[in-house]
């Protein structure tokens, strides 16, 4: 078994009284980001409009990463999104069995000062890491598990 690693950008996140709200498995293909975002948006999370938009963007970005980069074998794969709600937070876990990838530790692209310096890609993790109030990662039993936490408050 691989060692479990847990990284988080927020160390004092609330975890009490968490209950599962919904889980959905998606095929890893180009339709997955839109399907996962739409499914998440339709859940009764109780998030404010701004928090919900932020969370939806993070789900889209992380699922897109799985679709584009997690698998190189050309086979058929799935990913799972689990959403739980505690009294103070909505937690989203995105799980895949692709190659190990820690979005909390991956290097970010340098901020461009001109269009010439602007590379076309690499901004998804920048968005997720700048938006998600809580972001964690662990590799467990051959699965990547990316954990997002969004507070149930009015938001910024």
């Amino acid at each position: 078994m691989e060692p479990t690693r847990l990284h988080t950008l927020e160390t004092d996140a609330p975890r009490a009284d968490t209950s599962s709200m919904s889980t959905r498995t998606f095929p890893v293909d180009r339709s997955a980001p839109r399907a996962a975002a739409a499914w998440f948006r339709g859940l009764p999370t109780g998030l404010s409009a701004s928090r919900l938009a932020d969370a939806e963007l993070c789900v889209d970005e992380l699922v897109t990463n799985v679709v584009r980069y997690a698998f190189t074998d050309g086979g058929t794969h799935t990913l799972t999104v689990n959403v739980e709600r505690s009294p103070s937070e909505v937690e989203i876990v995105i799980q895949d069995d692709g190659r190990p990838f820690d979005p909390t530790a991956a290097p970010l692209p340098a901020m461009p000062r001109t269009l010439d310096e602007a590379v076309p890609g690499g901004r998804g993790l920048l968005l997720v890491r700048s938006i998600a109030p809580r972001l964690g990662y662990e590799r467990r039993d051959g699965f990547n598990r990316v954990i997002l936490g969004f507070p149930l408050d009015p938001g910024p």
Binding site: P33, A37, E56, L57, D60, E61, T64, L115, D116, A118, V119, P120, G121, G122, R123, G124, L126, L127
Partner: peptide
């Protein structure tokens, strides 16, 4: 209605080609 980083990349690529 929604733009992810993939959309940003498309915009950047077109802008670079124009400049």
């Amino acid at each position: 209605e929604f733009m992810s980083s993939i959309g940003v990349s498309v915009i950047v690529r077109v802008a670079r080609a124009l400049t």
